[in-house]
Amino acid sequence: MGTESETYQLGILGAGVMGSGIAALAVGHGVPVVLMDTDPQALERARAAVAHQVRHAGLVAALPAGVPRGELVLSTSPEDLAGVTAVVEAVTEDFAAKAKALATAAEAVTPGTPLLTNTSGIPVDELADGLPRPGDVIGTHFMNPPYLIKMVEVSRGPRTADTTLAATERLLTGLARQPVVIRDAPGFVTSRLLHPMINDAIRVVAEGTASAEAVDQLMRGCLGHPTGPLRTADLIGLDNLADALTALHLRTGDERSKPCVLLLEKVRAGDLGRKTGRGFYDYGEGLK
């Protein structure tokens, strides 16, 4: 990374869709990464996924020229987090899983190391609550794919320290991302608006009003949505979409956020979108 004054090493917890994408963003900007998962198979898949996404970023000229790639270390042991300058938590959208991952990281790193959660909408302060230093925690909601979408929704909890916010903004700027800081709330801004809309789009398909293709076509062609809600659902991963909707429903009571039947059926059938090759669309083997 460009600045001499600050050198980074990023610890990333969770090597799924977002963990691998954030790793690609970081190594593509020359930042070394320790990518951790409790599942060794997830790490094995992530090795290929990070390489694929670095190529994708290169293809569309989304990486700085002439910057050597950061080193990527894959690990299942929290001790490997010892030297990192910031941690990004990107594990399953489940309060218990996140609380556990964050507690493990908080113990492994130097006090004051920012702990960034990539949750889609679990309030940052809930996640900070059980930790020894709640001030170190902040929400950095990267969009998918993180190396293509420059804007990052930053959620500052009521206990987030000024130094944590400042360090996070420097890190994001170093990764050529653009932070927008908001107040902590369930679903923040983007998931609060996007997730119920996608849920409704799935209901529209289930009711037979229109096919997934037609819904996406209309949302793109008439309303200027870049990809359409069903393609977006497949990109997010339908299991994560259902989890994030459940987290939102639980905290807001909004019935629109209760995962609809067709969404839950697809999750049960294992059709999770791009990551399994099929969701509302077919992607074939190559994109798994």
């Binding site: 694929h52 190529r55 994708h56 293809l59 293509l148």
Partner: peptide, 25 residues
Amino acid sequence: NSMFAMELVVHLEQTFGVMIEGQDL
């Protein structure tokens, strides 16, 4: 779009047995 572009890379590599690297990417 930029997502589909990468699908094209994968399709070419798998269908025609080539590796697309470096300057060609």
